[in-house]
Amino acid sequence: MRAVRRSIVLAMIAGLSITGWQPAMATETADCAWTATDLPLPPGHTGGHVRGSRDSNSVVGAGFHNGYTGIVWRNGSPIALPKWPDRNSENYPNDISASGLVAGHRSTYTPTSYLDEPYVIGGDYTSYRWLPTPAGVSARPVAMNDRGEIVGYSGESGAAHQILLWKQLGGHWTRKSLGPGNPVGIDEAGRVATDDGRIISPDGSTRYLEHVPGMDHPVVVSYENERVAGYRALENGAISAIWDATGKLVSSSDQDFLFARAANTKGTVLGTTLRARLETAVWRPGQPVQTVADPRPEFASLNLWYGTITEDEKIIATYETTEGDNQPAVWSCE
C-alpha cells in the first residue's frame, strides 16, 4: 500500500554497507537490465506524474490538461477522473486500494488563498465523496490500506499539521485526530508511520523507530510493503535505514551519500546516488548497486513526485522525456 511523504532527497554517492550483508561497490554490471513501460495518458494530456500505487496494476497520478486532473491506471489502462467546472481547482489522487477506491484531494486556488479538500472515489469513477474535515481548514489524504482506512493531515502550509484518520462506518466517513505530525503511510493493521520516526498503533500507543548510531533525527520518507525508509544527512555523508512495521531495524547504510527511498520485504531498496550526476539506484542483499537510467526515474528530483519498489520487484515512478514532458511509467528488471 502506498505510503509516502514527499521529500527532497539530497545528492548521494554509491558506497554502501548494510547491516547483515556486504554488497559489492556500485557497478554498471548486473544480472538484469531495467526497462520502462509507459503508463499511457488519457487523450488531451500533455504530461503527468505518478502519486501513489498499490502495485504495478493499480496506480494513481495527475496529468496536465488545462490544469492538473486525476488519473487512475488499472492494469495499465488510464481512466480520467471527472473534472470540476471551477477552473481554479486541480485534482491530485494520492493512493488506491485493492478494491480500486481512490483517495485524493482537490486544491482550489484564488489570488489570496487556497483550500485542499479530501475526497474518495471508486466504482465507475464518476462521483466523488468528500471526507469530513475541520471547517475551513485544508486537509489531504496521504495513504490508505485495503480496509479502507485513510491517513492524512490537516493544516495550512508552514503551520503545524494534525494527523487525521478517516474510516467508513455505517455508510458514513468518520474523522479522528491522532495528534500533531505528518504521516507517511498506514499498513493493513492500521499502524501509521510519521516522518519524525514514530509508529502509532490503532490503540493509540506510540513507539519510535530503533535508533541507528549517528542517526539521531531521521527523516522518514516512506512506509509501504511494511517497510519504513529514512535517512539522515551528515556534513560529509549520510546514513540511510530500513525498519519493519514494528520499528525494528532491518538494514542501514553509513557510507557516503546513498539514501534509501523505499524498500520491499525481499530486501530490495530503491534510492538515489551521486556519481558524475544524480542517479537512481537499486540495491539488493549480496548484489552490486545498480543504476536505473534511459529513462531514469525522477522521483528524487522534485518533492511532489512519487517513487517506489513493489513486492514483485518493479519500480513505479515518473521520468522526463526528451521533449521535456513528464511521463509515468513502470520499470522491470529483465
Rank of each mutant, 00 (worst) to 15 (best):
G148T: 03
G76R: 06
N66P: 01
A103H: 09
N145C: 07
R87N: 08
Y153C: 02
A98P: 05
G148N: 10
N145Y: 09
N94Y: 12
Y119M: 08
D95K: 06
V59Q: 12
L81M: 13
D95P: 07
A98S: 05
T108K: 15
R147P: 12
V102K: 11
L81F: 12
I150H: 15
T110Y: 03
S113T: 11
N145V: 04
G104I: 04
R140M: 08
M144C: 00
F64I: 07
R106T: 04
T126R: 15
P118Y: 01
Y114L: 06
G122Q: 06
D86K: 13
P78C: 03
H105F: 13
Y128R: 14
G152L: 00
V60E: 14
L101S: 08
Y68N: 12
G152I: 00
S97L: 00
Y114K: 10
V72K: 13
T110H: 10
Y109A: 00
W73I: 04
A80C: 05
R74K: 05
S77I: 02
G63Q: 04
W84M: 08
A98Y: 01
A62C: 09
N57R: 14
K83E: 09
S113G: 07
Y114P: 05
V72I: 14
S77C: 00
R54D: 03
R87I: 01
T112R: 11
G123T: 07
T69L: 03
D124V: 01
Y125L: 10
S56F: 08
L115F: 14
N75K: 12
L115K: 14
E149S: 09
G67N: 13
I150W: 06
P134N: 12
P141T: 15
G63M: 00
I96H: 02
P132H: 15
T126Y: 05
T110G: 10
V151R: 15
T110S: 11
S127K: 14
G76P: 06
E90M: 05
T126Q: 14
E149P: 04
V137H: 12
N57Y: 06
P82L: 06
D146W: 09
L101N: 12
V102I: 05
L101M: 15
G152M: 02
V120W: 11
P118E: 02
K83T: 09
F64P: 12
H105I: 03
S113K: 04
I121Y: 13
I121N: 08
G63W: 00
Y128C: 05
P132R: 15
D124I: 03
I71P: 02
R106F: 02
R129K: 05
